Computed example of a mutant assay.
Amino acid sequence: MAKTPEQALADFSPGLPFAVAFSGGADSTALLVACARRWPGQVRAVHIHHGLQLAADDFERHCKALCQKLDVPLSVRRLQAGHAQGQSPEDAARKARYKALAEAVQTEWPEVKDIALAQHADDQIETLLIALSRGSGLPGLASMPAHKQRLGLHWHRPWLKVPGLALRDWLQAQGHGWIEDPTNTDENFTRNRIRAKVLPALAEALPAFRDTFARSAAHAAQAQEVLNEVAEQDLLQIGVPPCIEALQQLSHARQALVLRHWLQSQHANTPSTAQLTELLNQVADCTTRGHRLHLKVGQGFVRRDGPSLVWHSS
């Protein structure tokens, strides 16, 4: 069920003190204002300055002015993220942004272990629709978790049940402004096309879509949690690095599950569907000692090393 900002924040229990990822847009401005009001003196803010964007300096000025008004300490980090071959610019920017946020907190406020992010209900629906358009499995359909541990920190998304319009209405009622990202209206970006064209159509055809889609994402997340537990148990059985003979004793589906889990948990790499399919085919063909295996998987390669599979980056 959709919530008001006040209701969402009442359910949010971060460790104190904590930081807010503060872009200067409406969503993160609402988050910072609401958190600073609820936990005075316990909130820090981190702003990532994207040097490639012309409006970046305006965002920084807005962030500094509001933090000064709210008496919230602010750290500004400059970022110009490149991307590796085969990696999308969006994925590279997202990972670089998380890393910069974590480094800012751990460097300036080592006592801070929690970071709040401002993604809201509409962002969650957009994430789910993008995952569906790409034919994603359960991890993609689970969309964004409300809480996750990463880079030694706890990351929270307290707004996931709050529609974006509710945040803007609330912020205006509090008498606070924000900076509009000029790229938000650029429909060359998939998210913007969904926001401008798909969400209004869904609201007309399926008025409760935010709640029902979010429920489906939650079901997918729960199912994926169970599969992760199965994959962890299987990985203990086949070993790290994976023993090919032990891997072959599993069903085809569990082979896929445990190999994906191995690559993600041990090497922070996610294989494409085509790469994983080919890897499974090659594993099935490993019936003699002389069978060689060397495949591009994720940002590196999987090869056969005697009785086992090993991953390397080059």
Rank of each mutant, 00 (worst) to 15 (best):
Q224T: 01
A208I: 09
Q222L: 09
L227D: 04
L202G: 04
E229I: 06
A205T: 12
A217Y: 03
A231N: 09
A214H: 08
Q233F: 07
L202Q: 15
A203R: 15
A217H: 10
Q233I: 10
E204W: 12
A218G: 13
A203D: 10
L199W: 07
H219G: 09
E225N: 15
F213E: 05
A218K: 07
A221F: 02
N228V: 00
E225A: 09
L202H: 01
A217D: 06
E232I: 03
N228H: 10
E225H: 15
E229M: 06
T212Q: 10
A208G: 14
A208T: 10
P207H: 06
T212D: 14
R210D: 02
F209N: 03
Q233V: 04
L227P: 02
V230D: 07
A223W: 07
D211C: 06
A214I: 08
A231G: 08
E204H: 13
F209D: 01
E229S: 06
F209I: 03
A223G: 05
N228F: 08
E232Y: 00
A205N: 10
A201F: 05
Q222A: 13
D234F: 14
A203M: 09
H219I: 09
V198G: 11
A218H: 09
Q233K: 11
P207D: 03
P207V: 05
A231R: 07
F213D: 01
L206Y: 11
V198Q: 05
L202W: 00
S216A: 12
A231E: 05
T212A: 01
D211L: 02
D211Y: 11
L199T: 04
E225P: 04
A205E: 09
A221T: 03
A214K: 09
A201P: 01
A217W: 08
N228L: 14
D211V: 08
L202S: 13
H219F: 11
A208S: 15
A218P: 04
A231D: 03
A223F: 04
L202I: 07
S216G: 08
V226T: 10
F213G: 10
R215Q: 13
D211E: 12
A231S: 11
V230F: 02
Q224F: 11
L206K: 01
N228M: 08
A214Y: 07
F209M: 01
D234M: 02
Q222R: 14
A220N: 13
P207E: 02
P207R: 03
F209H: 03
A208Q: 13
T212W: 05
A221V: 01
E204C: 12
A223P: 01
A231Q: 10
Q233S: 14
E225V: 04
S216W: 04
A223D: 11
V198K: 02
T212E: 13
E229H: 09
R210H: 02
E204T: 05
L206N: 03
L206E: 04
V230C: 08
L227V: 13
